[in-house]
Computed example of a mutant assay.
Amino acid sequence: MFEVKMPRTSDDIEESLIVFWHVEEGDDVEEGDVLVEVQTEKAVFEIEAETEGTIREILVKRGESAKIGETIATISDDQDNESAEEENDQKHIEKKAETGAGSQSFVRVSPRLRKLARDAGVNLSEIRGSGKGGVITESDIRNAAEGQTNEETGSGNKMSGIRKVIASRMMASLHESAQLTLTSWVDVTGLSQKRKESASKVSWNTLICYATVQALELHPEMNAHIEGDQITTYDQVHLGMAVDTESGLYVPVLTGAHELTIEKMDEELKVLAKKVASGNLSGIPMKGSTFTVTNLGKFGIEFFTPIIHPPEVGILGVGTIETHLALENGKVIQRERIPLSLTFDHRAVDGAPAAKFLQSVAGQCQALMEEL
């Protein structure tokens, strides 16, 4: 029997998420076959079979997480399979487990699933299996347990693996830094008009990201990392872009953003967002960003308080563009503006430099009229 264990992919990562299993229980595999894709908050990795045999049991399902060194599956040869089957059959004949209240008719499941049902207080005889031939799966037991919990208490849903990673990351960010948020409106009336006149297809998100990159080059103190008492500033801008997906929040990285034209940045940001939204994380850099932008404009949000993506010292939140009436020279005119929310780590940057950076972002937005 060979145990497939969760490998260590980074010195600072102690837990990884199962993204996708390429095999199912009962599948035959050869040495070198890709078994599963696992994800940390930084990257996606493939785990290959180190031996040939048959997938006997998958212990950690898609969407669940496992600690480094934990067994996530087992591979057995034909002899192992025959011995295990005889052993399990004998155990099933000798003992009928009880789950939930009172006794129940015997249901054949693996010892692991029987224990899971017993711990969850689920009666196996009341579950209709969704597996091949009506076999009860782990998901069936968990769904039954959640349904029972919801009915009795109205809550009790367990965090998914990626949700746990996000929660841990955000709590660490808030506990280990001194975060403060500044807000400001940016007038984009002229930029909006120029965008329409030039029929530019560059998104507003890209325009703000491009202006942010230009401002970071003028204010390197914001393009930095802080770890312990060490502050490291960078000449190159590697821009993180928060992307919301059905499974949670991801931050892919646009490396070398300072070297890109507006059109090239727009193209690459759209490709990154599309890949991440579809769940295709292979080959996408998820670490090394020096500053992050998060955009909630499509949800109609104005100002908000984004949480820093450690070890960065700042993150810019972008709200929805809106029209408003302003008084100029005694006349009421219509203008357009975008709300920006800058959260920065006060350990590394003071309020005045952070405010100047936010002003620079606004100024770079105005300068973009010459580039469209």
Results as ranks from 00 to 15, higher is better:
residue 167 A to Y: 05
residue 225 H to P: 04
residue 219 H to W: 00
residue 218 L to M: 06
residue 171 M to D: 12
residue 179 Q to R: 06
residue 200 S to R: 08
residue 186 V to T: 09
residue 208 I to K: 01
residue 183 T to K: 11
residue 204 W to R: 03
residue 222 M to A: 02
residue 180 L to E: 07
residue 223 N to C: 03
residue 199 A to K: 15
residue 237 V to L: 10
residue 199 A to H: 14
residue 190 G to D: 15
residue 171 M to I: 13
residue 215 A to M: 01
residue 160 S to Q: 11
residue 204 W to C: 01
residue 238 H to S: 10
residue 192 S to A: 10
residue 211 A to P: 05
residue 224 A to R: 01
residue 224 A to K: 00
residue 188 V to D: 05
residue 203 S to Q: 13
residue 194 K to S: 13
residue 203 S to H: 08
residue 164 K to F: 09
residue 177 S to E: 11
residue 214 Q to M: 13
residue 180 L to R: 01
residue 199 A to P: 06
residue 162 I to D: 05
residue 204 W to T: 04
residue 201 K to E: 11
residue 167 A to M: 10
residue 197 E to W: 06
residue 209 C to T: 01
residue 181 T to N: 06
residue 175 H to A: 14
residue 166 I to F: 06
residue 198 S to E: 08
residue 232 T to F: 02
residue 170 M to I: 15
residue 159 M to L: 15
residue 186 V to Y: 05
residue 224 A to C: 04
residue 221 E to I: 03
residue 206 T to E: 10
residue 181 T to I: 05
residue 179 Q to V: 06
residue 157 N to M: 09
residue 223 N to R: 00
residue 239 L to T: 04
residue 193 Q to H: 09
residue 232 T to Q: 07
residue 193 Q to C: 04
residue 202 V to T: 07
residue 221 E to A: 01
residue 167 A to W: 14
residue 196 K to E: 15
residue 201 K to P: 07
residue 199 A to Q: 14
residue 164 K to Y: 09
residue 214 Q to N: 08
residue 158 K to C: 05
residue 211 A to M: 02
residue 157 N to L: 06
residue 195 R to M: 14
residue 214 Q to C: 11
residue 161 G to E: 07
residue 169 R to A: 13
residue 209 C to K: 02
residue 236 Q to H: 09
residue 232 T to D: 04
residue 182 L to N: 05
residue 208 I to L: 06
residue 172 A to F: 14
residue 171 M to T: 14
residue 171 M to A: 11
residue 195 R to F: 12
residue 213 V to L: 02
residue 195 R to K: 14
residue 230 Q to I: 07
residue 223 N to F: 01
residue 158 K to D: 13
residue 225 H to V: 06
residue 186 V to I: 11
residue 239 L to I: 07
residue 191 L to P: 07
residue 207 L to Q: 09
residue 213 V to A: 03
residue 237 V to E: 00
residue 229 D to R: 14
residue 221 E to K: 05
residue 172 A to G: 13
residue 238 H to I: 02
residue 187 D to W: 06
residue 235 D to Q: 10
residue 179 Q to K: 07
residue 193 Q to Y: 12
residue 216 L to W: 00
residue 190 G to S: 14
residue 225 H to S: 02
residue 182 L to R: 10
residue 226 I to A: 09
residue 186 V to K: 08
residue 196 K to F: 09
residue 221 E to L: 05
residue 227 E to T: 13
residue 166 I to A: 13
residue 189 T to D: 10
residue 219 H to V: 00
residue 206 T to D: 04
residue 237 V to P: 00
residue 158 K to L: 12
residue 190 G to T: 10
residue 197 E to Q: 12
residue 174 L to G: 08
residue 190 G to A: 15
residue 214 Q to A: 08
residue 234 Y to E: 03
residue 182 L to E: 06
residue 169 R to I: 10
residue 235 D to Y: 02
residue 186 V to N: 04
residue 220 P to C: 02
residue 207 L to P: 04
residue 181 T to H: 09
residue 239 L to N: 07
residue 191 L to A: 15
residue 161 G to N: 03
residue 168 S to A: 15
residue 232 T to H: 05
residue 170 M to V: 15
residue 178 A to T: 14
residue 181 T to Q: 06
residue 207 L to E: 12
residue 212 T to Q: 00
residue 207 L to W: 03
residue 220 P to A: 05
residue 231 I to E: 06
residue 199 A to T: 09
residue 229 D to Y: 11
residue 204 W to E: 03
residue 215 A to Y: 01
residue 225 H to G: 01
residue 206 T to P: 03
residue 225 H to W: 09
residue 178 A to F: 15
residue 177 S to G: 12
residue 214 Q to H: 08
residue 184 S to Q: 13
